[in-house]
């Protein structure tokens, strides 16, 4: 966001009312348009709804889609959490959180269980979400068929007519070239038995979590598409009968909290190539440590890690 302002700048802005943002930055008509798109997306799970993406104070590729969806969905009573690759403390997560603090004044948190709206890039939180929560995904390329079929006209036809043979061609090619389906993230899924969807670049490890109690909203700002999954929608990862889908599982427990079922980041800790595996979901790890779980590499409690 903007660097620290001088007193005179601040006076100038106050004079002109430049500090007066509408709640969550977007004007009400835009929010209404986005909400309509969201409702349509919820009514047709997995269907990509075009919407008029707005200019945001961050460039394309930095989460404008997710930000617009969050902006349309937030109310003053919400508690907001932002994670980027599972962590609350990366630059982007911090930026987006501060953006909404400034423009919406909503309460923020790092605790998954306390948030009502969670915006995420590249992960689904480890803690199971509830019916009263909303998960907003940042999506770069919403079209799962794009890499094999460059024509937008043709991919729309394929979705319209449920012609998804090409999707399996991609998986076939993977097996032919690599011996196994090599797609490790953004693994395509079929939702509600109808539309094939790109779940955004989450690791395939997270695919099983896509069947959840919370509302899931997907926003692609540059590509101008919104799609959605209502709670408990059936989500099936595509595969072959003789090469069934397997959510990859780490070989290690978390070095810090000892969790065996969470997605891990690998950290190089010294020049000798020493490694530390730790939960990518920082809040999940911290909560486990606070509850007394300890991993093999756990250091004594350090200020600011939680």
């Amino acid at each position: 966001m903007s660097p620290a302002m001088t007193q005179s700048d601040q006076d100038l802005q106050e004079d002109r009312g430049m500090n007066d943002y509408n709640f969550a930055y977007l004007d009400e008509q835009t929010k209404r348009m986005i909400r309509r798109a969201i409702l349509k997306g919820l009514a047709i799970p997995g269907y990509q709804v075009p919407f008029a993406s707005r200019e945001m104070p961050m460039p394309y590729g930095w989460g404008t889609g997710g930000v617009q969806v969050s902006a349309a969905v937030l109310t003053p009573e919400d508690t907001f959490k932002v994670i980027d690759q599972g962590a609350d403390d990366t630059t982007n997560a911090v930026s987006i959180r501060r953006f909404f603090q400034k423009t919406a004044g909503v309460a923020v948190t790092e605790a998954t269980t306390e948030a009502s709206v969670i915006q995420t890039r590249h992960r689904i939180p480890e803690a199971a979400l509830r019916e009263d929560q909303v998960l907003v995904y940042q999506v770069p390329i919403p079209e799962p068929l794009r890499f094999l079929e460059p024509s937008e006209v043709e991919t729309r036809k394929m979705h319209e007519l449920e012609e998804y043979g090409l999707m399996h061609v991609k998986l076939y090619e993977d097996i032919a070239q690599h011996g196994a389906i090599a797609t490790a993230y953004a693994y395509p899924v079929k939702v509600g038995g109808r539309y094939v969807m790109d779940p955004s670049p989450i690791p395939k490890f997270d695919n099983p979590k896509l069947e959840m109690a919370a509302i899931q909203l997907f926003g692609a700002g540059r590509e101008q598409r919104i799609y959605a999954l209502p709670p408990y929608t059936q989500v099936v990862s595509l595969d072959f009968e003789d090469h069934p889908f397997e959510a990859s599982k780490a070989d290690h427990p978390c070095g810090l909290c000892g969790a065996e079922d969470s997605y891990l980041d690998e950290l190089i800790v010294d020049d000798a190539g020493g490694r530390l595996f730790m939960c990518s979901d920082t809040d999940y790890c911290a909560a486990r440590q606070a509850a007394g779980h300890r991993g093999a590499d756990a250091a004594p409690v350090v200020e600011g890690m939680a």
Binding site: L148, E163, Y164, G165, L166, H168, V169, Y172, E173, I175, A176, Q177, F240, E241, D242, H243
Partner: peptide
Amino acid sequence: NVSAGGNVGERLMAVGARHYG
């Protein structure tokens, strides 16, 4: 940009074939 096998298999996959082998 798809292998020969993928080209031949596409129509089969398009009508529901789901066994790689």
